[in-house]
Design a protein around this nucleic acid. Structure first.
Lengths: 156, 156
DNA sequence: ATTTTTGTTCAGTTCGAATTGAACGCAGAT
DNA sequence: ATCTGCGTTCAATTCGAACTGAACAAAAAT
């Protein structure tokens, strides 16, 4: 079988590169996260560029973004000028939080519009009600994610 | 104030064009849905092209996709060869279902990889555990969306 | 028969996000 | 002082998804 650990590792990194697009991140950001999740320990800036086969410029930009989000952490070691990165304990939570925030934003924006609409005429059915429904939809999604969050942090 | 209904309608359509990107749809698909949600009633193929200011080719492709997803419905009227479209009652549910399915897929794909990994050595901490955690993460997201679904269909 | 209306198809174009790569500044080593 | 290694920056490039628009087929109207 070709099921060596390094094959799985490589597959996982590729998979992460694809999956994170639904989180609004670039492929390289996903692959960085994938590599750091798999390895667990801290890896150097150069390692990332070499192992992922991408330019240092890309590592710089993407790593900075991931650090800002709280998905990964930058470490600096005395006597070593290289930057090291490791996956953050909250990396999953950050993903969840980000998605949840986006849902709340959408809910709010739709609610703003629906609130400016005059009351629907006749028996309930009108634009205001429909937009209100969409706003509720996003609010329910956000709530569902909060429950997912509770579920994940609860039994640990 | 410039808060005429048509302004709000236009803003909502624009907003939908932006929001649906997180659902993996194109801007035009979102604007079609936005227009149909706002108006509630059925609109003709030509109306959509004219009001949204896009090519008929785009309407054709995007409307077909939305019909296939179950987000909108095509109507044909006797003695009128135009196609009419209206928002589907399940349009919100389809969005939810789609996202939930994606989460389940991700959970499964990560699980596949983690299952091929040898048991972690030492005290629990290893790649297998971390990938397992990610798989659980996506599973929890899917569960959260099911709860959102229940929440939405429950109190109506 | 011819013209018009309607939706589909697909080759070409547009557009922007992602990535590259070279220039740069900084800091330690020689 | 010079050189080397490290990370940042930004102009240029790549690449693909989204969109266009013209050609087309089908069906009704003239």
């Amino acid at each position: 079988m070709s099921d060596t650990i390094s094959t799985i590792r490589s597959d996982f990194i590729t998979l992460m590169g694809q999956m994170v697009e639904s989180h609004g991140l670039s492929p390289i950001s996903g692959r960085i996260m994938g590599l750091l999740i798999f390895d667990g320990e801290a890896r150097s800036f150069s390692d990332l560029a070499t192992e992922l086969g991408v330019s240092r410029g890309s590592i710089s930009a993407n790593a900075r973004l991931l650090v800002a989000r709280g998905s990964i952490m930058k470490e600096n070691r005395p006597g070593d000028r290289q930057d090291y990165f490791r996956i953050s304990d909250q990396s999953f939570d950050v993903m969840l939080q980000t998605l949840m925030q986006r849902m709340l934003d959408m809910s709010g924006r739709v609610r703003e519009l629906s609130d400016r609409l005059p009351a629907d005429d006749a028996e309930g059915d009108g634009p205001r009600r429909r937009l209100g429904g969409l706003s509720q939809f996003y609010a329910a999604m956000a709530l569902g994610m909060r429950q997912a969050q509770d579920h994940l942090t609860g039994d640990e």
